[in-house]
Write a protein that binds this DNA or RNA. Structure first.
Lengths: 193, 193
DNA sequence: GCTATCTTATTACAGCTGTTATAACAACAA
DNA sequence: TTGTTGTTATAACAGCTGTAATAAGATAGC
């Protein structure tokens, strides 16, 4: 496989992830993704033998890893306020895109749930969510929380963030995100269930 | 307009809301909704001159009112534990549908955001979210929270719930919902920001 | 019963979708 | 150079979509 072909393949995945975040799973077509990525349509099924399902699956995995890396960087940079750091970064991203850019994993989770031949997509979504939870749980334990409560807390924080992103998009307003930035510390302050 | 026609119109709206919750905005077609509602296809543009956009808009409004009524009933029934009551009802609904049934408003919010001619849908989504927030805010104030913090808290609780629903669907597991049921009280316990 | 209005069945359209087949092209090994 | 392989352009497919027009049917008011 030539070098430019590899780059083209990766461009398709990243384009799919970006368009997934703004248009949703069924809002994107192979033709549009390919055009956005400046990649050739003719070689789509050469690079992705399983078609759209495979493109979406790899886009979810890639976007999930990107977010994980970003979260990990925040937590490593400031152990006490790493979560707040992460929240601020997402806040900026939301406002800069004028609430057009959501979470691609959420989009895939919602739109792939009742589709046939979407098992790989659902599997990727589940894995990404699980990885985020594990990252946060570990961090919360290192902050002194009890293991079992840390697990619940991690899930609750992720739910809060994802929900707030949806609310911001729905209301075209950053207020929901500021609300969770204000309220999440109260959850984190409670040391036990 | 005949009585059966009115009933048919309403059935279409409710079918659209139900299918929106499971299949998403672009996962449903007029033909399928009509079939599910046992309504005639020929009269679709008689009942909904603006086509699919109007059906979805009215479905969002109807589903929003249903949820509002349910929330209000819970809060009225038990002032102290009304929110927990509401959470338990949603928990049951999720498990009974085996995580197929999500929130139709969230689906509309995500999938209508970058579509043309979807302003009415987006407007309906925004109104529904705002109404929920207002209901919860009023309740939290009556529980003794400061007005401004009550507002943030209301948004955070809604975000938590919506996010947890998405996580449950993504992981095919009720654990995320149990996690927020466990963690939300900590947020509510903090009387001030 | 007759008329006017409300309602619906049927058919058709044009556009987009994922996918596939075919053939032309490039790059590289012998 | 020859041949083989990796890559792509082009075109076509069958299926679905929202939408529209037409004409037939049902219903209510007189």
């Amino acid at each position: 496989m030539s070098k430019s072909a590899i780059e083209g393949r990766q461009r398709v995945i990243e384009a799919a992830a970006a368009m997934l975040a703004s248009h949703g799973l069924r809002g994107i077509s192979i033709r549009e993704v390919i055009k956005f990525a400046n990649a050739p349509l003719g070689s789509t099924y050469h690079n992705f033998p399983n078609g759209k399902q495979q493109i979406v699956t790899e886009a979810v995995q890639w976007a999930g890893e990107q977010a994980s890396a970003q979260l990990q960087a925040c937590l490593a940079q400031d152990k006490e306020n790493g979560i707040q750091l992460f929240l601020q970064q997402w806040r900026k991203r939301l406002t800069k895109s004028e609430f057009r850019h959501g979470c691609p994993i959420v989009a895939a989770a919602i739109e792939a749930s009742e589709e046939e031949d979407a098992e790989p997509v659902k599997q990727a979504v589940s894995t990404v969510f699980a990885h985020w939870q594990q990252l946060l749980t570990t961090h919360l334990i290192s902050l002194g929380h009890a293991a079992s409560y840390a697990q619940s807390l991690a899930v609750a924080v992720i739910a809060c963030i994802e929900g707030a992103v949806v609310l911001c998009r729905g209301q075209q307003n950053i207020a929901p995100f500021d609300a969770i930035i204000e309220c999440i510390p109260a959850m984190l302050a409670a040391k036990q269930a």
